[in-house]
Nucleic acid binder design. Structure first.
Lengths: 162, 162
DNA sequence: TACATTTGCGTAACTAGTTACGTAATTTAT
DNA sequence: ATAAATTACGTAACTAGTTACGCAAATGTA
């Protein structure tokens, strides 16, 4: 049991901050893990690797849609992956606005080691979810609700009812 | 049901990213909400307000411990709150390293309106957790596990077992 | 009392996301 | 065929967190 934790003490009020704290914790712990293993990638490169492995070539917009993140976020990630030579780009021949992204040979060669790391990450998630079988389903429920009507809209409506 | 969501498709692999996506979504939606209501504060000021309302005076270190965040994070938040004149500081008389933080009159006057906003936020969380009564308990379980042994340590051990 | 250690907090540099804006290429509409 | 609207993506400026480092004040120790 965590002692003296204000966020737990204040219950529902602290829930969003606890979620943020947890995800931040995992984020920086993952960085730490990569560093310890001597792998020179950032946590948020993981899904880009997976997407490009599966689809060979994707544009910035396609990736941002599939990950449901803003396109500038993807642009930033891609820039760093390019700097480390994990990603290459070429302009689409039929639409010169589009940048086709693909994994470089360096990336392909690194994949086996990376995939082992990611497997270890999955094992950790399984550990953390042990006795928590509904967590994923519960999360999906929340995602669905928020997808249908945003947190902001809901809160505005709730405020007007007070 | 969310369509074509790569993060859901890949199951456990996408879980941490989904949690991050959810907390980011709530974060920016909360900003949006404050803006819509015409309240000039940031989401992460909320807990500082609550702590200082409860304890009158706290130091940077005390706040960072209670929220379990790094002290530079608190320093940054406080700086912005000071710029908007919601927080005042005075140097501790017995230990001149310590900065005592307190809510200004402007903050005290703003509190009633803010508290109404936060009440609306709680109602929203209740909505989102409807049919999800175990979510909080489940979250606490994960926090406990990660508190005992970090995500990094767990993953390193899992990697060695592969 | 002098010196080493610890504590408090501030800054710098970094990743990580957002919204807002701009521009060029493509598509649509008139 | 030309003008308008849309799309793709890049940049800027912002909040939000971290780790690493530095310095001065306080504390512990010889």
């Amino acid at each position: 049991m965590i002692q003296n934790d204000f966020l737990i003490e204040i219950q529902l009020v602290g829930l969003t901050s606890r979620l943020k704290r947890l995800t931040d914790n995992i984020l920086y712990s993952t960085k730490d893990f990569y560093k310890a293993v001597g792998v020179d990638i950032e946590p948020n490169w993981h899904l880009i690797f997976l997407l490009l492995k599966k689809h060979r070539e994707l544009t910035v917009t396609e990736i941002s849609e599939r990950l449901q993140m803003s396109h500038p976020a993807i642009v930033k990630i891609i820039r760093n992956m390019k700097l480390k030579d994990y990603i290459g780009t070429k302009t689409d021949t039929t639409d010169s606005r589009k940048q086709l992204l693909y994994l470089t040979t360096k990336a392909e060669l690194a994949l086996p080691q990376l995939e082992k790391c990611w497997e270890a990450c999955i094992l950790t998630m399984e550990e953390l979810l042990e006795g928590n079988e509904f967590f994923l389903k519960n999360l999906e429920l929340i995602e669905e609700k928020i997808g249908k009507k945003s947190y902001k809209e809901r809160t505005l409506k709730n405020l007007n009812r007070l």
